[in-house]
Design a protein around this nucleic acid. Structure first.
Lengths: 206, 206
DNA sequence: ATGCGCTTTGAGTGATCGCTCAAGATCCGG
DNA sequence: CCGGATCTTGAGCGATCACTCAAAGCGCAT
């Protein structure tokens, strides 16, 4: 994305761009695009407006960068679940279960991509387009995992990976919204476990 | 809500308050609270700022009124499904199915209450509190319908109405978000029908 | 040490925000 | 037909919005 960024670097950058981006991501995630002001960002990033506009190009571009980072982190998290799990379906089930037990230390928030999609309804918005795109890519990835389960014989050949992926994404989305609504509760964990069990019930003993 | 509103009414109100409220609801629903400006509202309601502030008290109060109206309409819709359906579970299944086939004439939007909750994260916001309250009330209502199904012997006595209601709400929420994402598609209808079938699968033949 | 080239700074830009209120328009009882 | 009450109007309020740029700060090569 930002290749050839530091030509000679005669002076150490006093702030860490990735750290700043993370702070922006967290703030945007919590408050949303429209409710977050430049003042809020200045405080969170410990940067003056001029620096923000030098590093990122506009509030919208900063949001898009934050969203991209968020998507990357989500992807990485899913992949770590795949690496740890014994099989594709187990990975999907574990991933789902993880959303049933949000970090007790901090407030839970619904998926930032979904939030982005919901509060930028207009077609002309670049953020709405990006959100749609990320959701599509996520969908494709989940579909791929179901297909992999099919290839391994874990999932019936007659199953529809595309449909299963869509249903899976809906479950994750709903679960994360519920997490924001009620926080860390037993009932949330029960819902997550129930959904995860439904995924594992798809397994056919070969 | 607004009882004793017109003491003597010496002059006919040139705009219809309910019509204006509907217009505000639609606009807020589409754009969200923060992205909707007074200018937008003036245009949509055909009212000047002074009139808006005379009729409703502030942008926030107008939003709260619009949200209350939205909640009322949703409740009424659910009750009409109950009235038409042969049983509580059928009503819930039909209600779910209805979200799979959004009006082809216009764009579909996710539930306004959920959207409200998601883009007013702060605790101190009156809108966030109202949204949480409406979701709780909706949950209670669904729970009541499941309980009614139990009373009628349609649903097993060992079922957990509270848990079923939460899961049901999650399905509706997710389905409506998907409707906003993809619009009117066969796959959306398939997802809705599948969820509806799951509700009807709870029926025990007495 | 000094000058160069980069970065950070933050007061200030015009625009727009939510909102107000004095003045005009409109309807009623008499 | 008029006086008074009520409602609508819209220019304009201070605050805040996203954003800019001339000036100052600072590290580096010399």
């Amino acid at each position: 994305m930002n290749a050839a960024y530091i030509p000679i670097m005669q002076r150490a950058r006093p702030y860490d761009r990735n750290l700043a981006l993370d702070a922006a991501m967290t703030l945007f995630w919590r408050k949303g695009y429209h409710a977050t002001s430049l003042k809020d960002l200045e405080q969170a990033l410990h940067m003056k407006p001029g620096s923000i506009y030098a590093a990122f190009q506009s509030k919208e571009a900063l949001y898009l960068a934050a969203l991209e980072r968020y998507f990357g982190l989500t992807q990485a998290s899913l992949e770590s679940f795949i690496a740890k799990a014994a099989s594709p379906l187990s990975a999907l089930a574990d991933f789902l279960r993880s959303f049933g037990r949000p970090d007790p230390g901090q407030a839970a928030y619904a998926c930032m991509i979904v939030k982005s999609m919901l509060d930028t309804s207009e077609q002309d918005s670049m953020i709405a387009r990006a959100a749609h795109d990320y959701l599509d890519r996520m969908n494709t990835e989940i579909t791929g995992i179901f297909r992999e389960a099919q290839r391994l014989g874990e999932l019936s050949a007659s199953a529809d990976p595309d449909h299963l992926a869509r249903r899976y994404m809906l479950n994750v989305t709903a679960l994360r919204i519920e997490a924001q609504r009620v926080g860390l509760t037993d009932e949330l964990a029960a819902l997550a476990d129930e959904m995860a069990d439904e995924i594992e019930a798809l397994r056919q003993t070969a």
